[in-house]
Design a protein around this nucleic acid. Structure first.
Length: 272
DNA sequence: GACCAGGGCCGGC
DNA sequence: GCCGGCCCTGGT
């Protein structure tokens, strides 16, 4: 167990923010996360966060994963005092952070996300993890699943993938898995590119359009400039930023504010 | 039961 | 650049 005080962190809001689909609250009241083939649980009381792992593991994986090494006070203070909508959205989503999730998982997750709702996205991802991901056991003897590799997904038939409720997205996932597994497309190279170049590169993938490319840049490559515009953000822009979104003022962090706006517009209800 | 929207994209024009 | 079609499911 490792405990740490963190400001501006709220695991519950992050869990339901629509940027991650595989963080779940368990019957022990802890949030479970699987990444890097590792399993961890955490819970929060005020600004005290308890991770059920060693200090070493915390600093090896989770400090960075949860972006706890970033100064969100500094980011939030960049909001224009006259930008009332963003101030409201930020207060509503106080504690939100953009996580540093694994790139491949993000690519697949946001291929699935298109024309889909969050509940069903979670279900689809859960299914492909259970079917095609490596099975492991946590310290309670419970089974958990790693996210399947591109190699693993590249061998499945489109028909079988469709049976994971993926619909027409199955062929996007299949072709993309094959492109990665064959080496035709390199995720490692993608990580070395600046935002705009990475975005252009991502658009070459079958099934990746501008919106999904922006999501992958923001959530998978941690380019905080990336600004996905979906139906919610479109709504926000039409309602509250008629003269255009102030990208100049928010350069370098627009994606974080996009997340606050998205979350505020989404207004999710937490399962009790 | 019918209809629609949900973190869109592809292909044909 | 615009538009029809696309899987499926939960909500009205």
């Amino acid at each position: 167990m490792y405990q740490i005080h963190v400001k501006h962190f709220n695991i519950e809001q992050i869990c339901y923010s629509g940027q991650c689909f595989r963080i779940n609250k368990n019957s022990r009241g802890y949030y479970e996360v699987v990444a890097f083939g590792q399993y961890v649980e955490l819970m929060q009381e005020g600004d005290l966060v308890t991770f059920l792992c060693s200090e070493e593991q915390f600093y090896q994986y989770w400090n960075s994963y949860f972006a706890l090494d970033e100064d969100y006070d500094a980011i939030v203070s960049q909001i224009d005092p006259e930008d009332e909508y963003m101030l409201t959205a930020m207060k509503y989503g106080w504690g939100m952070r953009i996580l540093k999730q694994e790139l491949w998982e993000i690519v697949v997750s946001f291929l699935i996300s298109q024309q889909n709702n969050i509940k069903r996205i979670r279900g689809c991802i859960q299914t492909i993890c259970e079917r095609y991901g490596t099975e492991k056991t946590n310290s309670y003897g419970e089974t958990y699943y790693c996210f399947p590799t591109a190699q693993a997904l590249s061998h499945i038939s489109e028909l079988e993938l469709r049976s994971c409720n993926l619909g027409y997205r199955a062929k996007y996932i299949l072709r993309t898995s094959q492109a990665i597994a064959s080496g035709e497309f390199s995720l490692e190279h993608l990580k070395t590119l600046p935002y705009e170049e990475a975005k252009q590169e991502l658009l070459k993938l079958y099934g990746v359009g501008i919106k999904v490319a922006e999501c992958i840049c923001l959530y998978g490559l941690h380019h905080l400039d990336a600004f996905p515009v979906d139906t919610h953000i479109k709504h926000v822009l039409e309602e509250h930023y008629v003269d255009g979104f102030p990208f100049e003022k928010y350069q370098g962090v627009a994606g974080v504010f996009q997340q606050y706006a998205f979350y505020y517009d989404l207004h999710p209800e937490f399962p009790s």
